[in-house]
Amino acid sequence: MQDDHVIPEAHYREAADYIRSHTRQQPTIGLVLGSGLGPLIEAIEAPDVIDYADIPHWPHSTVQGHAGRLVIGQLEGRTVVAMQGRIHFYEGYTMAQVTLPVRVMKLLGVDTVILTNAAGGLNPAFSTGDIMLINDHINLPGITGTNPLIGPNLESFGPRFSIHTRMYNPALGKLAHRVAGANNLTLRDGIYVSLSGPTFETPAEVRMLRLLGGDSVGMSTAPEALVAYHTGMRVLGLSTITNMSIDSTETQEKVSHEDVLRLGRQIVPNLTLLLRGILRDMPPFDPEEMENGPHA
């Protein structure tokens, strides 16, 4: 019986081969869309659409607000492959399965990945509707035993011990701020805290995460960022603040997944404007700039 914690390299290649057989387009940029952000797909032109269920070895999204489709097409003159809905650890998948799509993107020729998520605001200066540029993350599941790179290392993807000092690409971050300024968009900066979910945080946990330095919190992104950077991709991360995390047991406020989806949809126009500008002005990928060195 196959151990799902260890995915054979052949499975990644079979998934990539299937996708190639269903499109003539050659994507170089990957997009992963979080809860409520699926409508961004509508901006992609000449789309080739593939259901997750049809791709060999590809995990299926089971969460409301995640359509479960791969869309390949044109956006601002770039060929992109977009995940309309991601896979989460809390759905019962292993970290290897959660991050399988990222390694498949690498095999398809993707050199830059843009990760978006719907997140709770930890920073009291933030407001619902804000967009936050992820400068770094705190991956609590990863540092306590569920890092997606645990297990036999696949040398064809990256080194055994990879360096992650500048995982979120500084040049792309500066570009995001330039685009935001040119379009009168407020773009926050901050540290994203990744948890396993599926429960929202308790007030005591919210206060703890603030003490750790977190500005936003969610249930995704960090595993994908780790694996993408391990393979030698540039990474840009954006959190959409769809709720403010509750830090007191005395509050009458409530948060629900439905609220997250609703606010996510409201943020889509600003996020679309920001992403279009980033893609339009994105500089060419230079593998020599990567911390771990260029990977084949």
Results as ranks from 00 to 15, higher is better:
Q2H: 14
H5L: 05
I7T: 13
E9K: 14
E14N: 12
A15N: 14
H22L: 06
L31A: 05
V32L: 10
L33R: 01
G38K: 01
L40V: 02
I41N: 06
I41A: 13
I44L: 03
V49R: 12
Y52F: 09
A53F: 01
P56L: 09
V63Y: 01
A67E: 09
L70V: 09
L70M: 05
V81G: 06
M83Q: 14
Q84S: 04
Q84P: 01
I87D: 01
Q97Y: 08
V98S: 12
T99E: 07
P101S: 12
L108N: 11
L108T: 11
D111S: 15
T128I: 13
I138K: 03
G142A: 10
I143L: 15
T146F: 12
T146P: 00
P148N: 06
I150P: 01
S156F: 12
A171K: 15
A171D: 14
L175S: 08
A176H: 04
R178K: 10
N184I: 01
L185C: 10
G190T: 00
I191P: 06
S194T: 10
V206F: 05
M208C: 13
D215Y: 00
Y229G: 10
H230I: 02
H230M: 03
G232K: 06
G232M: 05
G232W: 04
M233G: 09
G237N: 07
L238N: 06
S239I: 08
I241V: 15
I246W: 08
I246C: 07
D247V: 08
Q252Y: 01
L275M: 09
L279W: 04
D281H: 13
F285I: 06
M290W: 02
